[in-house]
Write a protein that binds this DNA or RNA. Structure first.
Length: 731
DNA sequence: GAGCACTGC
């Protein structure tokens, strides 16, 4: 191992690199994959004696990366993992007193900063994969700049100055250096093989709205199979249903032909078609990594999971659809919308690079040059600019960053995203009118949960009914636990089982169903079998069990402090769960408007429907007010995980949502509002939004809105895609 | 009357 590392491109630069780290506070190190920077640099710094001052910490955006890199480095340094070299990720701390090189996720380091703002146990902090621009890495970058950029202050709270190394692919390195006080940039050549890229002809900018590109993807993948030399194929699509459809089409094609193709001197017989996406069972995922039988070509049809998270050996050909599914926060409607968008050029290069890891490769882009030029941005919008910032802003505030608008962001989020986060924190009583963190806010920041869930959990804890909320919070913060298969027969069976689980609670309340599923499975003799019988995702439920334990531990620790709030409750005990949910989800309150249509009370007045998977679906006539966990935009705007509430429970909370217009709310947010009054209110809301537009610089606003996806846009796109899908199915 | 990419604490 050690001898092999001498052949890595980084080896030649060892001495200079060590010197560069010693010479300045900040250093940017760039190098493509294969340069050895992630595994070697920490070892060099350790050999140079820098770790005598403290641990060398290396962050990664992903758990698996942190663990596997640590394993490799431990091997190279010939030590036991967890001693000199260790790692720390959520639920798994593999470090000890002896640990001098520590790999961890960026989220872990952020947690550590909360407890120790000056990172006093570290001599060097290395942020890796900075070009990926994960939310946590971006925040760490800003924090490290803020705390350590002033040389006079770089020893604050420490006995020696901290060194910060930022590692990135060779993109935007000037920007990084400029951000970190014009620090030096150290370039290391990569060691990857050339990948030749070709553009297609069929898919152009006008095809963004359709799923017609699946056919094109399949055609090209098959052309590769019949005309290219041996080597496996990796196809990038956006999601499970697309992947399943593409696999079906590929299979049909492969069946209809004779399997013998002589491709120059190498022969490829058949095609092994393998789907790959995140929610797939793990053992099925593992199949992907096995080498194909002799003379068989492997064709993996995958989501973006194959772009960074999983590396498959032997891939020589890439077929790139040019699309990805992305979760974007839309502050104009106050919702998160999952939508299909074109990838960026840098992302396309990343995908192409997956073909050049072991030998020269080829990348076939199904889209034409015009699509590349007109529809694909240079870089992916960083997460910090398209995500809800509520939790992150609370973290910053707890770290004493009062002015969160002028915090040194590498890329600033839009001001309204920040204002929206502040408003929500104020509504949760996590900050006060002057923007200072409250006692409650300090408690909230300790929980690895969405702020709304945390708020509900803390309410429950103060009412001594945390056992109702802990499992619910855990269940809502893991992937969806209800499995819904593709086959219609099995679908019916699964739906039936799920409905049975819901009715066991004896109440129409999707949150209570989660609680009941949690306990039913936990008390079962063979939990995994129970899950299988009931079409429940065992892997997801298992992680909900660990999350629940973790939340319970955090809560216990906080309650042992004497100043944990305690409240009394004189209402009906059976209402307790729903009352707590109201405290956390009063921003997600909806009132029935007309028929089955509900209207959100968050000030946006969006029209929503109850999702058919809810126990409350088709019970709308009996409902007036509900709270919900999340929103899904497809053919309609659906609310999912719903429970009925009484208006009195949120009466005192709702005014907080409208504090600018309290008088208006006092007129509207009454249970006895008539439908006519409701309509009036809705049109007033609409007018208010209009006047907001005219207040601002109109051109600017127009420009912004052009770049912005509304719920209706997303819905329209969905419907169009659906139509196209049906058309393409028809003969 | 339905369709969820990926990651993290």
């Amino acid at each position: 191992m050690m001898s092999e590392s001498k052949y890595l491109p980084i080896y030649k630069h060892k001495a200079k690199l060590i010197q560069a780290v010693k010479d300045s506070t900040f250093l940017v190190v760039t190098g493509e994959t294969g340069s050895g920077k992630t595994t070697q640099l920490p070892q060099y710094l350790h050999e140079a004696g820098i770790s005598k001052d403290g641990t060398i910490g290396v962050t990664q955006p992903r758990r698996v990366a942190a663990i596997t890199v640590a394993q490799r480095v431990a091997q190279e340094m010939k030590c036991t993992l967890g001693r000199e070299v260790g790692y720390q990720v959520r639920f798994d701390d593999c470090t000890s007193q002896d640990t001098v090189v520590k790999y961890m996720t960026d989220g872990c380091l952020l947690r550590e900063i909360l407890a120790d703002p000056f990172l006093s146990k570290y001599s060097v902090v290395i942020l890796d994969e900075v070009h990926e621009r994960s939310l946590n890495t971006d925040i760490l970058l800003g924090l490290l700049k803020k705390v350590f950029s002033d040389p006079a202050k770089s020893t604050r709270g420490r006995s020696f100055p901290l060194k910060v190394v930022v590692m990135s692919a060779t993109l935007e390195t000037d920007k990084l250096s400029a951000f970190l006080s014009d620090c030096p940039v150290f370039q290391i050549p990569g060691r990857t093989y050339p990948v030749t890229c070709t553009f297609g002809s069929a898919v152009g900018p006008k095809d963004i709205e359709s799923t017609g590109y699946i056919k094109e993807v399949v055609k090209i993948a098959f052309d590769v199979h019949t005309s290219e030399m041996a080597g496996d194929v990796l196809v990038f699509l956006t999601g499970q249903s697309e992947i399943e459809r593409a696999c079906d089409l590929l299979y049909e094609k492969a069946e209809s032909i004779d399997y013998r193709y002589d491709v120059q001197d190498q022969t490829v017989d058949g095609l092994l078609i393998l789907p790959l996406y995140g929610s797939m069972p793990t053992d099925q995922q593992r199949q992907i990594f096995q080498p194909p039988p002799p003379r068989i070509r492997k064709c993996v049809v995958a989501t973006n999971i194959a772009a960074t998270s999983l590396t498959i050996d032997g891939i020589k050909y890439i077929v790139d659809s040019g699309f990805v599914k992305q979760l974007n926060h839309n502050s104009r409607v106050g919702m998160d919308i999952l939508e299909v968008v074109p990838i960026s050029k840098s992302e396309a290069q990343q995908r192409a690079g997956r073909a050049g890891r072991t030998s020269a490769g080829k990348c076939f882009r199904i889209y034409n040059k015009e699509f590349w030029e007109k529809s694909m941005p240079e870089y992916t919008v960083p997460e910090i600019q398209r995500t809800s910032l509520t939790a992150v802003i609370l973290t910053l505030k707890c770290l004493g960053v009062h002015d969160v608008i002028r915090f040194p962001y590498l890329d600033c989020p839009e001001e309204r995203f920040i204002l929206e986060a502040l408003k929500q924190l104020y509504q949760f009583d996590a900050i006060d009118r002057t923007g200072r963190v409250t006692h409650l806010g300090e408690l909230m920041v300790e929980f690895p949960l969405q702020p709304g869930l945390t708020r509900a959990l803390l309410k429950a804890a103060s009412l001594d009914c945390q056992d109702l909320l802990l499992p619910v919070a855990a269940m809502l913060s893991v992937e969806n636990i209800f499995i819904r298969p593709g086959h219609p027969d099995k679908q019916k069976e699964a739906d039936k089982k799920h409905r049975a689980l819901a009715s066991r609670t004896g109440s129409m309340n999707d949150f209570a169903t989660l609680l009941s599923v949690f306990h039913a499975c936990k008390s079962s003799d063979r939990p995994s079998g129970w899950c299988k019988d009931n079409w429940i995702h065992w892997r997801a439920l298992k992680s909900a069990f660990s999350v629940e334990t973790q939340l319970r531990e955090i809560l216990l620790r906080l309650q042992q402090k004497s100043d944990f709030p305690v409240e009394t409750f004189d209402g009906n005990k059976s209402e307790l769960l729903r009352r707590c949910l109201c405290t956390g989800y009063f921003t997600n309150v909806a009132r029935r408007s007309v028929g089955k249509v509900f209207c959100t009370m968050d000030g946006h007045g969006s029209m929503v429907h109850i999702h058919p998977s809810s126990a409350l679906f088709d019970q709308e006539d009996e409902l007036n007010w509900v709270v919900f966990h999340d929103v899904l935009v497809t053919s309609r705007v659906y609310i999912r995980t719903v429970c009925p509430i009484r208006y009195e429970w949120v009466k005192d909370l709702l005014p907080k949502l409208h504090e600018v217009d309290v008088y208006e709310l006092s007129n509207v947010a009454r249970e006895e509002v008539t439908d006519d009054e409701m309509k009036q209110w809705e049109s007033r809301e609409a007018a208010k939004r209009q006047s907001e537009v005219s207040k601002e610089d109109v051109m600017k606003k127009l420009e912004r809105r052009n770049n912005e996806t509304t719920v209706n846009d997303a819905r329209a796109r969905y419907l169009q895609r659906k139509q196209q899908r049906q058309q393409s199915k028809a003969p």
